[in-house]
Write a protein that binds this DNA or RNA. Structure first.
Lengths: 251, 251
DNA sequence: TATTGTTTCCGTATGGCCTACGGAAATGGG
DNA sequence: CCCATTTCCGTAGGCCATACGGAAACAATA
């Protein structure tokens, strides 16, 4: 399925929802059975358990014990609901501004990674046209403040920011991909690779792939630990090297 | 929509398709109206034009002038078809092993980026449980050979490999996200941001976001060029810094 | 209490998706 | 001409988002 995205709906309405612009309680009329917060919470719960693909309007309504169409009274549509979900979980990062600029970027990366771990469906939410809510904005402010303290020129800060942001979201996404697939398909990554043992037996050609063969023979793949642990190690390594490079590029 | 993925179908069947294991022509029986190659080509064409979300079995069959169910004679299901599509476009990279290890990694990144540019739907294809076909494998061999020439220890090569791979696919994905959304929603990135001018007017709080405000005032966002050009610049910067870091880490 | 205005709830219907099943159609050999 | 074999594909079941419009609930008023 393609990346889920914010609708072309009225931006003002979506922004009001993202920032929960308070509106005076209606004096007359039927009392609502559900609130926006309840809908968002229920939607996140469904997506956490069964993936974004299973998060249908009908499924969320069922979870709340209301009719499907009732949701549309509180939320413009599914795309906007996903925006609300994304911003809500980004708020869970709870960033504390302590330490050097580098430690703060690493903290930001760790917290963002934790969000993806807790909510693997974030992999499927595009951050190119992001939900302009408090969750996203607070995060941007945090990293930009850290990078601005690094000594980079203002113009360089914005460039470095895109690179860091890309790495963090990209790496977090690929790291949780595995879990998400395990959850939705019911097959773990290890089992999946195991079932493809046939590949190494029947298709891998040592003459066509000398570098891989050499690495294999050198024991480069004799690793302890699970697939997830190895990905995490690589994630830390990659971010460290990227920050090394940014630091070194200032001279 | 959630990431599209390979089915739990018979791995042997999928691998045979990926490597196009030749099978002796059937002596008897009805002649096929379409081939696997034709199906994959048509599916790629549809996805290129209208996104992976529009690439339905019915749509592909229509493109080929056959009934929907006829496709299932040649391809196990939609998930496997997506694997075949992904491996096919990865083969377009056509990697030439020239230059220093660093130039080769950069060449790999450029060619992979070109694939995403030409086929934006690749953003929606998970690379965690990748199609183990020639397109993927040749690419892996190419980068691993380059990294192995860098002087890193074998064990370090595999770690660096995951980091580079993550950066390349992640950055390429976020770079094409914008184009893909422009194509499927009919709204360009610039127009989308324009419609959200309201945000800066009504919601942005200079006291809550001092770092962003300072950068803005310092002219860090007074950039010429389009959104796409800026993303490309950041991509190059990020990869350079990552490779700087890898190079520096060897000492 | 009955009416009225307002708001929310939600059943129905439309048009899409994947794919299991099984019969029809085509083909070449005996 | 028959028949085994292979491919083609119509039907049907069970999902999805959401436009529309009427029913139901509620507060204020008469």
């Amino acid at each position: 399925m393609a990346a889920e995205r914010s609708g072309g709906g009225d931006p003002a309405r979506t922004l009001a929802l993202l920032w929960r612009t308070p509106q005076e309680p209606k004096p007359v009329g039927r009392k609502p059975k559900v609130s926006v917060d309840q809908i968002v919470t229920a939607a996140i719960a469904v997506a956490d358990r069964e993936g974004l693909g299973a998060m249908s309007m009908a499924r969320v309504a069922q979870e709340l014990g209301v009719g499907t169409m009732s949701l549309y009274t509180h939320v413009p549509g599914k795309a906007e609901l996903i925006d609300l979900m994304a911003d809500a979980v980004l708020q869970e990062r709870d960033l504390v501004p302590e330490g050097t600029w580098r430690e703060r970027v690493q903290h930001y990366a760790d917290r963002t990674r934790a969000v993806y771990q807790a909510h693997p469906w974030m992999r499927d939410v595009s951050m190119v046209r992001p939900p302009l809510g408090p969750g996203l904005m607070d995060g941007q402010e945090f990293v930009l403040a850290a990078l601005a303290d690094s000594g980079l020129e203002p113009r360089q800060v914005t460039v470095a920011h895109v690179a860091v942001e890309g790495f963090v979201h990209g790496a977090a996404a690929s790291e949780v991909d595995d879990q998400q697939l395990a959850a939705t398909t019911g097959e773990s990554g290890d089992s999946w690779w195991g079932a493809r043992q046939v590949f190494w037996d029947d298709y891998f050609d040592v003459e066509r792939y000398p570098a891989m063969t050499a690495l294999w023979n050198a024991g480069a793949y004799d690793t302890e630990g699970t697939l997830a642990e190895n990905m995490h190690r690589s994630w830390n390594y990659g971010l460290d090297r990227l920050l090394d490079g940014i630091e070194g590029g200032m001279r």
